[in-house]
Write a protein that binds this DNA or RNA. Sequence first.
DNA 1: CCAAATATCTTGCTATGCAATACATAATAT
DNA 2: ATATTATGTATTGCATAGCAAGATATTTGG
Lengths: 119, 119
Amino acid sequence: MDEMDAAMALVEKWRSQSRKGFLDLCALSLLASREESYGLDIMETLSRAGLEVSEGTLYPLLARMTREGSLASSWSTPETGHPRKYYRLSPTGQLVLAAMREEFERNAAALRRIEGGTR
Amino acid sequence: MDEMDAAMALVEKWRSQSRKGFLDLCALSLLASREESYGLDIMETLSRAGLEVSEGTLYPLLARMTREGSLASSWSTPETGHPRKYYRLSPTGQLVLAAMREEFERNAAALRRIEGGTR
DNA sequence: CCAAATATCTTGCTATGCAATACATAATAT
DNA sequence: ATATTATGTATTGCATAGCAAGATATTTGG
């Protein structure tokens, strides 16, 4: 299966491209249903939902969204345990999330129309 | 509405990121339901399905997928009308499309779980 | 005290979307 | 004839995100 291998290599490359932006939507969605959370916990939760995300992807993502104003962050240094940076959705983040969800749905609907063979 | 403007600017930036890869899936899906088509026709069809794609996006995309082997292309120079480059799905392209659809569905399902508030 | 686990951050590379621009040919109007 | 518009494809340059690899720091267990 030579053709199969070629196809799989292409899909692998495509895979990481197709996650651009999508991971933002996932992170915001998670924080919308959770009050607050920290990096590794977010990674584990996404993993349990079937989405493997590496640290080199998630931490820059959280830093960027905080810088942009969609997230707010604060350190927690408990008496026992590691210091953690907790993130939560800001008001701007809620607006952003709503718009992303709309756009995602619009795109999914467009894809269904395309698959259906619109002329 | 200052916060609204900030949010909309962010979403605008996110928008183009979130289309990365997604447009490959759309183009392949379209060609899977159509035998063959050419650049401007693909643009118009996507537009009718609710997906606006510019030339600077679509032509490089088609060139790349042809180079990679997911598409096959051939010029048509009819007696009347403009020369057009027609594209169609290759066998590799069909494998790639199937894998992309699977991955897209898997991601959509993960997002639904995340929205549902998985722990 | 050393190793493993927990937790976050950074660097460098690769790849795509897109505005802008360019180029060429066919049909239409003047 | 010739200028203009419409049709059709291609390229360049920039901005941006994903990700492997590696760095750093603290806590807990042997």
